[in-house]
Each structure stands twice: as structure tokens, then as C-alpha cells.
Design a protein around this nucleic acid. Sequence first.
DNA 1: CTTAAATCCGATAACGTTACCGGCAACGAA
DNA 2: TTCGTTGCCGGTAACGTTATCGGATTTAAG
Lengths: 341, 341
Amino acid sequence: MEKQTTIKDIARALNISTSTVSRALRDATDVKPETKKAVQALAEQLDYQPNKLALSLLNRQTNSIGVIIPNLDYVLATMVKGIDEVALEAGYTVMVCQSDESFGREIVNTNRLLESLVDGFIVSVSSETKVYEHIKKIQNKKIPLVLFDRVINNMQAPKIRLDNVDGGIQATQHLIDQGYKKIAILAGPENLNISNKRMEGYLQTLKANNIKFDKHLAIHCDFNQQYAYEATKELIAMKQRPDAIFTISDRMAIGAMLAIKEKGLQMPKDIGLVGFNNEPITGLVTPSISSVEMYAFEIGKATAKLFIEMLHSEEDMSDREIVIKPKLFIRESSLRIPIKR
Amino acid sequence: MEKQTTIKDIARALNISTSTVSRALRDATDVKPETKKAVQALAEQLDYQPNKLALSLLNRQTNSIGVIIPNLDYVLATMVKGIDEVALEAGYTVMVCQSDESFGREIVNTNRLLESLVDGFIVSVSSETKVYEHIKKIQNKKIPLVLFDRVINNMQAPKIRLDNVDGGIQATQHLIDQGYKKIAILAGPENLNISNKRMEGYLQTLKANNIKFDKHLAIHCDFNQQYAYEATKELIAMKQRPDAIFTISDRMAIGAMLAIKEKGLQMPKDIGLVGFNNEPITGLVTPSISSVEMYAFEIGKATAKLFIEMLHSEEDMSDREIVIKPKLFIRESSLRIPIKR
DNA sequence: CTTAAATCCGATAACGTTACCGGCAACGAA
DNA sequence: TTCGTTGCCGGTAACGTTATCGGATTTAAG
């Protein structure tokens, strides 16, 4: 990597001062038109590009956003796409750091970006993360922070998230409406808030419909297809097996589907299934799987918008919370009774 | 965002010079132990973090890598994961910019990162990209560049890519071995190199097996499920319809599968299907779809390794080309004759 | 012809950090 | 006592850029 052309090179070549070059390039008023032209021509010729580093150092802003996420699966990749789009539009560059669900890597990533490389943070915490010192550190340094999707509940920061309780309600109520009586739930890790909220919706709905909660029908397992497959095998091996399963992700729904098929049970007749995320795959498998759409792209865009608003506003926004409503998409896996309109 | 503590703050507080503080923090030899301790203690207390911007400006290196990719679908997200892992290990931060397959956004992203924000580039071009001026600009400025996956053929730069021709050969030969006679191909956009190479493998294999190429059986369509669905509908509506389809992505294979099912044809009996990428979904749909594994994670890691080697070496590496061998995973969609071992 | 205003430009400091050089003590040796 | 040698520290310049101020020259106005 060789030395890039700088304002000094241009100044030297034209025998003028760097100040004048700087002004000429920014098309300031107090530069003679000829000088301006000469400078701009030479800049063009030498392929001059201003050094952002120097500018950032001077202005104390980098015009870049640090995005900390646990992985790049379908949902988060979609959210990042939304963030990216809005950020690009607003002139910001996005630095995406994925922790691969590792607490340690989340901390490393955060610290790296903290070294004055970004103007602020957009964070979704990993499933391993139970302690939030590294996030609090961002706040202590008064650096703008927005939480999204996997938000931290008792943290004073703007948040954008899905109404996960409502998602749980929609899924569960739908299964009840379809005549399912023993509804199991495959939840995620116990400390994962989005999972717990979806389960809360499930519990609320059972109660509202006077169905007693059977704790054997609620299984926490890792956010992954294989575990869901195992867990489902256990569920449907019970003497009083459930007649429906609500999984809090589509990956898990796929795992459940595999176990159900293997056992030779029919969906939706013998057993109903509802997933979460509404990934494209849910419409492609047989039977197609009902799933709760979480509008990931919109959440991403809303997050970036809120973040940029925060950067430009003096107002304290730490109480802001944007909650997106999910929507159940009903497909074959849970539709026993035709929907009336 | 408030002012962060700097070396000056510490110097002022302890009534010493910034030079001494700097040395004390770097644990240099020529500082009195007491001074050193005092400085380090105060730095700890004030949560001092060195300003990377200032360092980068001084050392002319940022320790970050710009990654330009067309999207964040399964394959590229997996590759990015690989890049990320190696880069993190080596102390680099990765800036991922996706162009969303837009030529314009690719240029914007490149220029943004060019403003001295990254030490080099890892690039996979968008499917829209037919002109490479923005990439050449990187090279003109003598900034390290590595191309991966969707490489640019006639560009003098290190490349890491899949042996796409071989992937095409494996898929096509397998279909021929399974007794399919009229094998169609769903290719991507016409200027997309990876697509053309896979097709080249297809053509070579036909020739090697003395099968005449029928140009009506080769369809170029957008890299997407919907178009593949439409194209397949046309293919199987032909009077002499193909008895097998090779699609150059799994997304397209899914589209083809939907069209085939809709028509009531059976896989693998009536029609065989082979996809590309070996996405998890191929093993989950019914029938499961044979697909060519491209080892995306390994490609990502190899790319980052080569890139970092390039940064630290004086040697000209622009002739380097790492080619990864793909491997066909045979599943239900194309298996008519049991494989003998 | 003088004065005020307009036009154009350069010097300087600053952003945060480190490399480099030089200086001042204190100390031991001659 | 004198002279080098350490040990410790401070000053300065530099990375690339811009904001600010002030100065010089030209132009316009009286």
C-alpha cells in the first residue's frame, strides 16, 4: 500500500498553501476561480480522495455504525439488510461484527469498535450473554446505543423489538381455534428473552382459554434444528403425547417436522405445528409450515432510523421503545378447519 | 457522545508529559516504576482506551478489512463467517458492505471504504457488475485486494474460488449415470462467471458422453426462486420435456421443485433434480435434493488467510489462485439407481 | 486621491498518538 | 574533582485535514 495523494501534494505542486487547496476542494467562495479550477483538475488527475481518518480525528465522528449481532442467520441477515439500507442512505458505513453466539467474542468485538472507530452501536446480544458490563461500558462512555431484536430488558436504552408475547398469543390461539388440545412448546435457551416472551404469550393464551399448563409440554432447548428434533422425538413418545407443537423458531420447526414425519404422524391431522420467523423455507416444505412473520427487514430499517435520529438529536431517547406487531401466516401444518372469512 | 479520556488528560492530572504517559502505558523501560504505576492506575480508573483513529493516521494502517459482497444469503453469510473468524484471530476488524446485487451500491461502498478506512479489500462482485473500474481503482492505489467466489477472470489479483466447472461436471455426470437422457440446465444471469463455469462443466460432460447439446434446454434466468419456477414450468410444458434439471443454485432448485410438484411429476422417477450450494434446506424438503457442496466456510477462511498473508508479505501474489474442489451430495431427487460401493 | 470594502490567500492550531532526540540529574569510576 | 554512564523525562514533529484569524492586494466609493 503506497502513500495516497494528499492535500499537501497538490499544494506543493501548485505552489500554494494547503489551506487554499482545502478551500478550493470544498468549493469555498474565497478562492480565485482559476486557482479553484487548477486545484480541482489536479485533484482529479491524481485521484485525490480525502483521508477520512484525519477528518474523523478532527471532527470526532467517523460516520460509521457498529452493529453487534450474534450470527448471520436468515432473520439477522435480513435485519442487517434493513439497517444497511437506511445507513447507506444517511451516509453512514456499517461495521457488522458477529459473535457467533459467543459471549467472549461479543466482548472482543465491542471493545474493538469502542476504540473510537464508530459513532455508536446497534446491538443484539448473543444467547450466551447473561452479563452486560461490556454494553454498559458503551453507555458509560456516553456513546449512542440502540438495542434491537434481542434487547436487554432492564437496560435504559432505546429499543426496537418484536411484540414477542403477541406472536406467542397468535400462534397458540390459532392452534386452540383449530381444535388442538394438548399444545407443547419448544422454547429456546432459558435466559433468552425473546424466547421467554413468546412462551409468555403461549402461557397467557392457555390461561385465557382455561387450559391448564402442563410443564412436561414445555421444553427448553438450544436454538437449533438438531436439538429440536431430539426434543420432539421425546415429546411424541410420551404416553399422552401432545397434539400440537409451537416452536419459537423455524429452524426448530423443521427439526420438529423431521421427527414427526419419522414417527409417521400426519400434519395437521395427528399433530399441528407452528413455527416462528416466517422464513421462506416454511412455504417450501411439505406440508408447508404455519409461522409467525416478524418483519425483520422493517425492524432493521426502524432500528437504523431511530439510531440516526438519536445521533442528531439532543433529546434523551433512552425510554423509546418501538414494538413491531408480528403476524401469523397460516399454512398446511396447522390448518384442520378451513378459515371462514 | 462526550469527549473520551485521552493521554493528555492523564498527563495533566499527574503533571507529567504526554510522552511519558505514552511510554508508561506501553510499559517501556525508561520510565520510573512509580510513575508507571501511577499512570496505569489512573488510566484504568478513567477507563482510558487509546484512540485508534489517531494511531491509524500515524501508522497508516487501520487493522480493518473491507469486505464487499453482493448479498447476505446463505452461501455468502457462511463465507463471511469464515472470513470473520480468521480476521478476528489475526487482530483485524471486518467491515462488511453488501451491495444487494446493485452495481451502483457496489461502487458507493467501494468508494466509502477507499477513503483510507481499510487496509485492503476482499471482494465478490455483484451479478450486475460488468465494468470493473471501481475495482481497478483499488489496485491503482496499490491497496491489497483479494477476489473470492465471484471472481473477475481477467483481472490480475489473487483469487479464491470454487472449481465451478468441476461442480457442473459432477452434477451432470451423476445425472447421466442415473440414466437421465434429456438434461436441462437453469443457469444464472449471462454475465455471471460462476454460472457460466458451472454451465461449462455441464456442456463438457454432455460432450464427453456424446450427448448433443440442445439449446432449448439451457435457460438463463435471474438468481432467484420465482424465475426458476417460471422457467421450469416452461421446460416441463415442452412437447419433448427434459427428464432432468440441473440448477446452478439451491434457491433455483427449490423453485424448480415447486413447478415439478405442481405439474404432478415425480422425482426422481419422472424427472431428476440437482442443485448447487448444498444448503441445509436441500436435506429437509421432500424429496430431498441432491446438491453440490461448495465449502463456503472454508473458502471464507482461505480467503482471509491469503489476504492477511498478502498484507504481511512483500512478494507479488497477484498470480495466486486457490481453487476449492466441490463435492456432490446425492439425495432423493436424483437417485434412481442405488449407488454401488 | 484617500479610504473602505471586497477578494484572495497563508500561517497556525488542533484532533490523539508515538518516534526521536536531547537534556538534566545522580551515580560510580578515575 | 571530573568525566562518562545510566535513568528518567520533556519537547518537537509528524500523520492529513479544516477553522480561524489576520494580512496583503485589488477594487469601489467618496
